[in-house]
Design a protein around this nucleic acid. Structure first.
Lengths: 182, 182
DNA sequence: GCCTATTGTGGCAGAGACTGCCAACTACGG
DNA sequence: CCGTAGTTGGCAGTCTCTGCCACAATAGGC
């Protein structure tokens, strides 16, 4: 059901753009009432970004599956690999949808906010990996580390999208991390 | 005029919360029509986050004022100092307003999106600082670096807000950067 | 087979954020 | 005194989203 709605919505979004497409159009396309549509997706943005939360969970479990003595950056990099396989992250099919993310401000803002929620999922694991090396900050360091990893992931993804999928996503990510840690 | 609106709005926001306060209430408080209010602030969020764009410009000019041979991280750290002085970044007066940022999802999302715009402002300068060391990526490395610096700034700011301004913002920032570059 | 509890659905009315349009008012230079 | 430009107010309308209620379908207990 959610899939039906999402498919129809994506079709319309790609035709007319995200903002130009109304809820009424989508509900008519699927054949349900607007009221019911909002029971499946609480927000218009959720139709596109709904599975981003599940993707975060996938990264979390992937991160916890990594060996406990692996360094934070390496473990995160490995955990992010599941996103390449999971079509949820790049929101299904094609590059066009991903490009829409970066061109539509409201979508981009919502995406950033949802990705920020990943922090709460990933930070605990990184916190244990960091150990209690320097006693001062409790979770600040882990938070910063995960936030930067996500920033690198975002940079790489954006570059990948803008190049129409030509460049190697993992390679860009590694370059980004290397530049940051210079 | 903008200041009048912003002041009245802040008062109401702190009393009732951001989402619970309507445009009608604000316009009545200031003594203008809702229609005119939207001529000064295009969005409800802009009433709170409007000066975030100017703050980005301030950081940009501060960054360009740093010596050209200074390392990217050091230059960014120094440029961020202007935010501590500029009341625009922490949106004026008190911690309560800043806390509202982190508690209101729509505000947080808008804030993240506006901060993302800082990338375009700061990346060119960092790009020249990095030089053409490794020829591959054009601006990917600079983008990642600035994005991570902003992530560290955000982490430090959030910690500062949640501690009610007890901790030293600059110190948290340095810890965050150190953790990232481990 | 029947009654009931749960669940999904549709329609309705309404709030709230915004936009386009037009009319009125104000300020300013000629 | 007049024309012009910029600011404002009001009106109507769109669109997203919500609460409420009624209706149908389905599942489970007897």
């Amino acid at each position: 059901m959610r899939a039906d709605i999402a498919d129809a919505a994506m079709r319309l979004f790609l035709e007319q753009g995200f903002e130009a497409t109304t809820i009424d159009q989508i509900s008519k396309e699927v054949g349900i009432s607007p009221r019911s549509l909002f029971r499946h997706f609480g927000t218009k943005e959720d139709i596109v970004l709904g599975n981003l939360t599940e993707a975060g969970q996938a990264v979390k479990t992937a991160l916890e599956a990594r060996p406990a003595d692996e360094a934070p950056w390496d473990a995160l990099r490995a955990a992010f690999e599941v996103l390449a396989a999971d079509p949820a992250y790049l929101s299904g099919q094609s590059l066009k949808i991903s490009k829409m993310f970066y061109e539509t401000p409201s979508l981009r803002a919502c995406q950033l906010e949802k990705r920020l929620r990943w922090l709460e999922l990933l930070v605990p694991n990184i916190e244990t990996r960091l150990g209690a090396d320097t006693g001062t900050g409790p979770g600040h360091r882990a938070r910063a580390l995960v936030a930067c990893a996500l920033a690198c992931l975002d940079t790489a993804t954006e570059a990948w999208v803008l190049s129409n999928g030509q460049v190697d996503l993992a390679q860009i990510f590694d370059e980004a991390v290397a530049a940051v840690r210079s």
